[in-house]
Design a protein around this nucleic acid. Structure first.
Lengths: 220, 220
DNA sequence: ACCTGAACACCGTTCAAGT
DNA sequence: ACCTGAACACCGTTCAAGT
């Protein structure tokens, strides 16, 4: 990534794997994962489908390259100032925003799970250590947080593209849910606000972590 | 379900949608969602693929029927005795166990989200009310819990079938993760235990909810 | 009412052949 | 080294035709 363009010296005319992956990502984000075929991807470069098989062993490898491409865009979050818990919340919001930015990768991610590794993990674990966890526990609690956020994005993606849900205000993340036979009249029907729901999930989880620290401190 | 077999009186020989959906679920659980085609499904009954199009408008409808079939199996959890928080944990474990029981539905569920509705929702919301939440808040906190558990199962499914992970002891839910360049030497490498991780997620979330009740009680 | 035969426009992938 | 032509075994789906 930081090196010189040594690998691109053959790119006077031919396609590079990177170009192909970038085109695949763009096309999938626009038309959906299922839509893209090797023939359509190849057509983007004016070549035949079989030409791609010189650069990639198969379609699976193309998809993995797309996931890796999006993963490389995940950089450390700008967290600003404030207590560790507040910065942790910003960190998790940053992760959600990233994973939502490429809808196709969310779909792919379930077959080729994104590795939230590298500098982001460092940042997250460091925040948990700052909060008061010893390194090994911080590492595992961080994994739990990642799973919660990633899982939330998965569910959110499914729900917001589902037939059971109609967008009330998609830009604001508000949807209406068609529930089957759960009509309790004492609870007024409110549209689903995924931003609000995410905040609830994150705040609850963080409160639980802080509570854990409080009780374990007491037991020492 | 409880009614008499009124709808099956035409089934002397022909296929019913229910039979087809059941076969599809079994085949998908065995071979995977991608594996199943209309032709293979039809072959199960010794008919041609086009025959299925008399009973279902398209493959999408078959998939939806499969999801609904599995959803119908989700019944209220046997929770036993104990304080509400303990029964809530059992309730969430019950949900995870159900959603994991049909791996194919997890894959499908992301296109056709499972509606955790009906009696199970009643049970979960009631537990949160018992814990101390007013009905409307209980309903929303329940939704948050559902998303956390469902999201966890999604991530778990992706991870345990991924190439980056190798099973250390799949029956016990333990996997080894191939991380890329996150080698911090101060943290000893431990295999991923999804059961343990789920417990962490659930306990942390529940602790957060209890904490929320504590602080809101104080503010009254 | 229920199913088949034949066909259409697609797939991913292989492989010999071109330059 | 890089790409094409032709082909294979598949898809989902349609539609006329059978019983």
């Amino acid at each position: 990534v930081a090196g010189r363009a040594k690998a691109e010296e053959t790119s006077t005319e031919g396609l590079t794997p990177d170009q192909v992956a970038r085109a695949a990502l763009a096309l999938m984000d626009e038309h959906g994962v299922e839509w893209l075929s090797m023939r359509k991807l190849a057509a983007q470069f004016g070549v035949s489908a079989q030409a791609l098989y010189w650069h990639f062993p198969n379609k699976d490898a193309v998809c993995r390259a797309v996931v890796d491409l999006a993963a490389a865009e995940l950089t450390a979050a700008p967290l600003g100032d404030g207590p560790p818990a507040v910065r942790l919340e910003r960190y998790l919001l940053h992760l959600r925003r990233h994973w939502r930015s490429h809808p196709s990768v969310i779909t792919l991610g379930q077959r080729y799970p994104p590795t939230a590794a590298g500098e982001v993990t460092e940042q997250g674990v460091a925040l948990l250590e700052e909060l008061g966890f010893p390194p090994d526990v911080a590492f595992e609690r961080h994994r739990a947080l990642i799973w919660v956020v990633l899982g939330f994005v998965y569910v959110e993606h499914g729900v917001t593209t589902s037939v059971h849900h109609t967008a009330v205000d998609a830009a604001a993340g508000r949807y209406d849910v068609a529930l089957k036979g759960t009509g309790r009249d004492d609870v007024p029907h409110r549209p689903l606000d995924t931003d609000e729901l995410f905040t609830v999930v994150v705040r609850t989880t963080l409160a639980g972590l802080v509570h854990e620290l409080g009780t374990s401190d007491r037991s020492r």
